[in-house]
Simulated assay, not measured.
Amino acid sequence: MRNVLFLCTGNSARSILAEALLGTLGQGRFAAYSAGSQPAGRVQPIAAELAMELGYPADRLRSKSWDEFATPGAPTIDFVITVCDNAAAETCPIWPGHPASAHWGVPDPAAVEGDDETKRRAYLAAMTTLRRRVELLLALPLDKLDRLSTQARLHEIGKTP
């Protein structure tokens, strides 16, 4: 079982969607988590709706600080993946075990203005991009890759449109 932490500044949309996707699609192989450097304190309603449509448990959907994962007793993280450009530019905590890291930048659907349908399309576009990347992660032969190869592959996945 590999532990993956998805990071975004607010931990309210993209990182939540990534957590739900990997938590659902990678069940049994991966434990997915998400957090933010400056958590919004709430999950965006459309992100929560899409996550639950995947079958992700509603009680796992909460906006939280990345500090929770740098404390004693927190799960040992194998991979840290940023999904927003702001979080990628921030100085992250030192994670125990020095996990492999990558940046999978995705436009922020929460920043899209317009009617409900326009906003929903933005969330679906973010989710589609993240799903494609999660599926590529799931296809990696992780038991056959060393740390540097894994890190390189994670970076390549982040360039997938």
Rank of each mutant, 00 (worst) to 15 (best):
C92M: 11
R132K: 12
A110T: 06
P93V: 08
G97W: 07
D146Q: 06
D146E: 09
L145T: 08
P93C: 06
V112P: 00
R133G: 02
E90H: 08
Y123D: 03
V134L: 05
A139S: 14
R131M: 04
R133A: 03
I94A: 11
T91D: 11
V134K: 05
P99R: 08
L154Q: 07
R131E: 15
W104D: 02
T118H: 08
R133V: 03
S101V: 01
P99H: 08
S149R: 15
E90D: 12
P99Y: 09
I94S: 07
A126V: 03
L138E: 07
A102N: 11
R121D: 09
E117N: 06
W95N: 01
L136T: 01
R153I: 00
C92K: 13
C92D: 06
A110M: 07
A139E: 14
D146C: 05
A110Y: 05
P96G: 06
A139K: 10
Y123C: 08
L137F: 09
L140I: 03
Q151P: 04
R153Q: 15
L138N: 03
L130P: 14
K119N: 02
L137A: 03
D143Y: 06
S101P: 00
H98G: 00
A111Y: 01
S149N: 11
D116S: 15
D116V: 15
E135P: 01
A139Q: 12
K144C: 06
G105P: 12
R120W: 10
P141V: 07
H103E: 02
P99T: 08
K144V: 00
R121V: 06
P141Q: 12
P99S: 09
T150F: 02
I94C: 01
S101C: 05
P96D: 07
A126F: 04
H103N: 08
T128Y: 04
V112H: 04
L136P: 01
D116I: 15
P109E: 05
L130H: 13
A122W: 03
A102G: 13
L136D: 10
G97E: 06
R133T: 04
G114K: 05
G97A: 07
P93F: 09
T91C: 07
V134R: 05
I94Y: 02
V134H: 05
S149Q: 15
E135R: 04
R120S: 02
R131W: 01
P109C: 11
L124C: 05
D115F: 08
L138I: 05
T128H: 14
R153S: 14
P141D: 14
L142H: 07
T150K: 04
R153E: 13
R133P: 09
L124G: 00
T129I: 14
D116Q: 15
L136C: 10
C92S: 13
E117R: 10
E113D: 13
L142M: 13
K119Q: 14
L140H: 08
K144P: 00
K119A: 10
L145S: 11
L140G: 08
L124N: 02
E135W: 01
G97M: 08
W95L: 13
A110V: 06
W95D: 01
A152E: 11
S101G: 03
